[in-house]
Design a protein around this nucleic acid. Structure first.
Lengths: 338, 338
DNA sequence: CTGAAAGCGCTTACAG
DNA sequence: CTGAAAGCGCTTACAG
């Protein structure tokens, strides 16, 4: 390559790395030749010499049994957003799906494969999250979404604002008796935040919050089904559900419809996450959707800051209300279902 | 590290790479010290010297506008399976989402970042697929799933057998008049294969195949809706639908239910892909599901073979029938809907 | 602005 | 079985 261009190896290196010190004519000539030869810098050698690593490891935390189906479209959307945000900044992403406790791996940074690790995925694999918490304490650069702990460097949706958006929307649509379906004592910090946001918004509107706690250990969809059954069995009037996530909302909605209640009309429903199956449900689900692109950017931004020894200012990702059919106006005659 | 163990750098290198020539006692001592020092081999230097690259690039082909939502859970399941299969073999995966024509990138191999590229994703971005077809012709190692061409090194589900499974199942459940909903002239080779499998199975059963072609340019869900509307409008009797993919099936099912037809009973429905939203639909969808783990393994296997200058024997991934509610037995009285 | 030379942390013949 | 030494393809002070 150097001899094809008639310059030294040093100059080729400088031209290809975009060093402005090389004469523009020289640089362009080298760039042209590189293109025609389909020559690219050897990334391994470049890293070895410079010590710079332009790669981020992304770990998707799976359940211990490694059945990836537990990961919902939300996690995948986040993964795509992270890879895209990294790519925009010229960074590469090494992706792994980790679940089984004997296959957990955090040595990307030690092995100079990546500058640090972005950890996302299910909050329910405590072993895995503990493992990465430990890595962070040992100095590995880790930024995460969905951690069951607050002491990792985290990024989260603006859950409080999102919950308020949902409550205000349901009230404006004529639903005055809104129950919250979700886990309150679960490891997912964001669920607690959504519940807190719901309580605040309800109280500001002079309404009494009502929590339908879900049973642990089941799929979100099944938890949603049981919550709706419990709500109906309670005999107390309600005419709307705000669920901590879309899968809970879809499960609840299925039961309501099986019991002959109309969604919307008899009951209004709003979920949280913006998953695709909500959009194509028989009754399309209104939801609070985080800005995925922003989520990817903020995660990458914090990683870069962390590696540079700084702390990035942003850690909350904005959310917006996506209005679909499940929260269309309440039926005026029967404003409460039993 | 070498001095901590009191041996030469060479011996450390050999011990850490598992070279059986080093004395077991020496190796174990070095391994212990490495663990206690949290020392890992510098992957960049190792690659530079040895020339071995234990990394595969995985490209998810997105639409040109890069809205990742078009990628369905099937593609993500495949991605997870590839990453897991690679990891089982000690390989790393660099993942990127590529759509916009001016951001297409195939230089992983030239830049010594990866041994080759596994390309998956939506078949609809012709620019992207052409780009990678071109890369393959220029010598880049490429293995793919979902390519609109046959001349790339591909891996696909056993679509023919899957379609036969679906038809036989519907017939056994008492559905005698089965329409096929799908694209026949579309770029996805697998759709053509599924249709061919359907035709063969129908003819073997002495039934007349019937194709409801879907309108291009819409989401699969909307295509499914319109296909069901067209089917109903045709006035010709049918009592089952085998759809080329789950999203089509779900769209069709939504229309059938809106029109007051019962699924199952009046109409039986089977899809293809095994996506999650089918499992949690109001009427859970029977489907033909490829073995995801096998898909990941076969893709990685072919990549490794290709790099070694060989051709791996396997390229078809087995499928199985997942029976859910949408294909429960036909209603005996009214065995055909209008 | 460009080149000659040192050196990143490994691996690997070669010698013992 | 182990060590001394060369060298992978880059980047980067340093000199001009």
């Amino acid at each position: 390559m150097a001899e094809a261009a008639g310059v030294s190896q040093s100059t080729v290196s400088r031209a290809l790395s975009g060093d402005p010190i090389v004469a523009e004519a020289t640089r362009n000539r080298i760039l042209d030749i590189a293109r025609s030869l389909n020559y690219h810098i050897d990334a391994a050698a470049s890293r070895t010499r410079s010590g710079r690593i332009e790669t981020i490891a992304v770990v998707m935390v799976c359940p211990e049994h490694e059945d990836v189906r537990v990961l919902n479209p939300f996690h995948y959307g986040l993964l795509a957003a992270i890879c895209s945000a990294a790519s925009q900044r010229g960074l590469e992403t090494i992706v792994s799906f980790q679940g089984a406790r004997d296959r957990l791996k955090d040595s990307y940074e030690q092995g100079r494969r990546a500058m640090g690790i972005i950890v996302i995925g299910t909050s329910e694999n405590h072993t895995a999250w503990n493992f990465f918490r430990n890595s962070a304490q040992n100095g590995t650069h880790i930024v995460c979404w969905g951690a069951p702990y607050d002491d990792l460097d985290w990024v989260r949706a603006d859950n409080h604002a999102g919950a308020a958006l949902a409550v205000e929307h349901l009230l404006a649509q004529g639903y005055k008796s809104i129950a919250y379906v979700g886990d309150n004592n679960c490891p997912q910090r964001q669920f607690a935040e959504r519940y807190a946001g719901y309580v605040t918004a309800m109280e500001q509107a002079g309404k009494t919050p009502r929590l339908i706690e879900v049973a642990p250990g089941l799929s979100r969809h099944e938890q949603g089904r049981r919550a709706a059954q419990a709500l109906l069995a309670s005999g107390q009037a309600f005419n709307a559900i705000f669920a901590a996530c879309d899968d809970l909302a879809l499960g609840a909605m299925a039961v309501l419809e099986e019991r002959g209640l109309s969604v919307p009309g008899d009951v209004g429903v709003v979920g949280f996450d913006g998953v695709r199956s909500g959009a194509i449900a028989v009754t399309p689900l209104s939801t609070i959707e985080p800005d995925f692109a922003a989520a990817g950017e903020v995660l990458v931004e914090r990683m870069l800051a962390s590696v540079a020894g700084e702390v990035a200012p942003r850690r909350r990702v904005p959310v917006s209300l996506v209005v679909r059919e499940s929260s269309a106006a309440a039926a005026p005659q029967k404003a409460t279902a039993a």
